[in-house]
Structure formats: structure tokens, C-alpha cells
Design a protein around this nucleic acid. Sequence first.
DNA 1: AACTTGTTTGATAATGATTCCTATCTACCT
DNA 2: AGGTAGATAGGAATCATTATCAAACAAGTT
Lengths: 142, 142
Amino acid sequence: MHLSHENFRELAWKCGLAATHQRQVIYEAIVAAPGHYSAEQIYADVRKRIPSISLATVYNNLKLFVEHGLLREVSPHTSMLLVEGNLEPHHHLVCTRCKAVQDVEGDFINYKKLSRQAPRGFDLTQPLVEVFGICRRCRAKT
Amino acid sequence: MHLSHENFRELAWKCGLAATHQRQVIYEAIVAAPGHYSAEQIYADVRKRIPSISLATVYNNLKLFVEHGLLREVSPHTSMLLVEGNLEPHHHLVCTRCKAVQDVEGDFINYKKLSRQAPRGFDLTQPLVEVFGICRRCRAKT
DNA sequence: AACTTGTTTGATAATGATTCCTATCTACCT
DNA sequence: AGGTAGATAGGAATCATTATCAAACAAGTT
């Protein structure tokens, strides 16, 4: 996929973001092929076209793109290690804004379908499922 | 809950871990009350009983406890930011060992049940679900 | 095309979570 | 008591990310 200059300008304009060259190149590096990319990977890729770009610019724009819904964040958690002692099967509800985690019962999952859809060999014997959304408090703030 | 000295020794012994005083206190700090705890929180709590304990000891033992199944890790991802450009509704399968992420179709979730079980006001309009397990390659290594 | 204003950028310093290193310590075996 | 392997404390090192700030730029206005 290759976005025309005009397409990107329009997308950026909708979000109230200036359509800079850096932003266009960063965005294209991600949507060019489906996949999950780290800031470093994107940085390495974008440098081929803009050798002088700063890593901070990549981070800033990834954050902006995610906030404006142009990109989705994979695993939007707190970056800290968290542990729990409750080993009873249960799942988590995670707020993508404040990163709060709360427990939730697990019978909203159809395990039969899930294991049919998972790739062969993927071990789901004791799956942990995390569902992301926005908690009531953060919802109210907007 | 308060684990007797003997109970912890037995638990540790089953895992082939020495039942040190530090380990017992760390373990008890977590299982004393249900919840999701960070290393720093646990460190602060354990210091009340063992002021000389090192933060590294807390990290080391959390890791060991998780590996041996005495504790569960919340959100067991790579600690890096990852983004994706694919905004079509879909979910993720994450390997808790190698942290690899792959896409999976989402119709194994009963959204009606899920939103009934979620606390009032939790916004699930565009939920992202991540299912944790062990991928084929990591499974084979053991 | 030049002017203006708020935004964006690049370079680098700072931060925060986690891991590494190593000398010391402990519990257990002889 | 001496030997040994694993565990710990303390601090340095690392890695990803964020903050800072002066210079460069985008986009609308004249």
C-alpha cells in the first residue's frame, strides 16, 4: 500500500494535526504491511527515507496517532511488572487510559471456538484473557 | 490469610526452591489480600518486616514464583510499545514466553455476557481482547 | 511571495523500571 | 570446623521512554 500525499493530508487534517513529511513517512511505514511494530523498528525503517529523523519524533507521533485513532496500540498496559496471587481461573478488564486492572468472570469466552481459531499448537490450557476498554472514571473525564 | 511456616516450606519444596525467610515474606505480602501488585509495592510492604531486603531480591523471587506457577503475572507482554495499523476489529494471541503477538478472529467472545459482567460504566464499544498462552515453538522447547 | 503564530522537530539529558554484578552470607553436608 | 552451592544486599548498568528547548517549519493572512 502506498498512500498518496493528498490522502494523508486529509487524514491528518481530520485529526487537527499538521501534515508534516515526518508524519506521513512514519504513518506509511506502519500501514505499508500488516503487523505489530515497535518504535525502534519504525525508527529504523523511517530513517531509510529521512536519515536525520529523531527517535523522539517517532515516539511523539506514535502517541499522537494512537490518541487520534489512526493507529491501535497493542497491549496498552502499564509498563510495570504486576503479579497476583489469585490462581483461580479469572480474567482481567484493563483501562487503556489509566491502566487500572480489575478482575472479571470468564464465561463470556467460547473456548471451543477460541481453540479452533488459534493456530495449531498454541497452548491454551490455562488461558488468561485481558479485555481493554475505558473505565467509568476515565470515561467521565472526557 | 496467614500462611504457617510449614505451609510455605512445603510449597517451596515442591518447586525445588529453598524456603528462605525473604521468600516467605514476599509470598505472604502478595497472597495476604487479593489484588494486583507491582514490585515496588511489594518491596515497600516487605521492608516493614525485613528492612534490609534488596529490591533485586524482590524482582528475582517474583520472577521465580511466576515461573513456578506460585503467582500469576498480570499482562505478560513485552515491555515495549507496539502499534499496528490494522483497525479492522480483531484480537491478539500473545505468547507468555517469547512475547510474540499474532492476530486472531474475534467471534469467540460473547459480547452480551461480557458487558453484563463488566462493571457499570466500563466502555467496551471497541474492545481489544488479548488471549495469553504458549506458542507452538516455545511449547516444543520445554 | 513575505509575514506571523503556534506547532513540530532534532539533539540530548533525564527518568524509571528492571537486570546485572559481585562480594558476602546461609544452610546444609562431611 | 571446613566445604559447597545457592541466595542475598547493594549498587552500577541497561534499556525504553519522556522531557527539555532552541531552531525550523506549516499553514493561514496579508
